[in-house]
Simulated scan of single mutants.
Amino acid sequence: MADSTTDTEITEAGTTLASQGEADAPEAPSRSWLEIELEDDMDEELEQAVDDSRVPPELRAKFERHRKNSLDRHTYFSELLRLQGELVKLQDWVRYKGLKLVVLFEGRDSAGKGGAIKRITQRVNPRTCRVVALPAPSDREKTQWYFQRYVPHLPAAGEIVLFDRSWYNRAGVERVMGFASEGEVEDFFRDVPEFERMLVRSGIILVKYWFSITDEEQQLRFLMRIHDPIKQWKLSPMDLQSRVRWEQYTKAKEAMFERTSIPEAPWHIVEGNDKKRARLNCMAHLLSVVPYEEVPHEEITLPERVFDPNYERRTLPPELYVPERY
């Protein structure tokens, strides 16, 4: 569990944000349904904030020093909810105009890609905005054209696809860990610019993000995972090797930027040492890449429920219900 200071800060952040804009107004006798809904939304995000703040005692002092430079919670939550509202508008625009949007998330292990993706998708419609996180290729897939297993996941008109790691595995982990030969890596560097130009010519908007963190920050995040049983699943043997081969990954990243940042699909680097700033900066930039407008919506009227005076609701046996322990 988080310490008492963290719990207090989180509670205050939720209370402050829920009443945002009412500081100078007279005290209302009761809360509106909109305020109650906002509070529910805040609770969901605050739960994730509690999880982010769960720090083992072994790392408490180091984490507290680190947190002093972080974005304050009030600013973070205010901007997060505002940007998430804009992302809903962006998704409506993509559907309305029949656009196709692909966003790639790359970066070192523990750089914050997953956290950013989670906040981007938190309030949008999952039917037309999906996340693709492919496992290691099967033996059959290893014999295919390298890009073949990614192609079926590309969007149709009106869809957004977020790749949590992508075909750039070949330029990173596969190259550094020796899963791909130098010849295969060279073929990739020669092919990927043309592959991405083909995607753009087909009408796909392609956005590429690299989440960057320092050596010291990655070490801290790995130590937090090692000492936190709830987060240990995030730490794989491959992650541990990435610490050993930090400099090799750096060289691979630099070569990737040099050879694959093209005018049609340039790389965008997100400074990730502060998770909150990284999420907000990434979301704000994504909104700036696709010019969008608010889509006109027809007014929705809730129809009256059909009422049958002769219908009597049956009493269900108690064993069907989940026990109410809370």
Rank of each mutant, 00 (worst) to 15 (best):
Q20I: 09
Q232K: 15
Q232W: 07
S242D: 09
E39V: 05
F307S: 10
W167F: 06
P266N: 08
V151N: 01
Q219W: 12
D52V: 10
N125Y: 12
I204V: 10
A116L: 04
R175E: 03
P29V: 12
D52I: 12
T5L: 11
V50W: 15
E299D: 13
E47A: 13
V173N: 03
S53P: 03
R245E: 07
Q219C: 13
K142P: 01
V161K: 03
R197M: 05
D215P: 08
G203F: 03
V290Q: 09
T8V: 10
P303F: 06
L134Y: 07
S138I: 06
T11C: 13
Y168V: 00
R170P: 01
P26Y: 11
P317R: 04
G98K: 06
E9T: 05
D239Y: 10
N169V: 01
A111H: 09
A25S: 14
E79D: 14
A28D: 09
C282V: 04
A157H: 10
R31H: 08
R54A: 10
R54D: 13
T15V: 14
P193Y: 01
A13F: 11
E184T: 03
V185W: 12
R65A: 13
C282F: 03
L87I: 06
D308I: 02
R190Y: 00
V124H: 04
D191Q: 15
I204T: 03
Y311I: 03
T250G: 08
L223K: 15
P318Q: 06
L134W: 02
R190D: 01
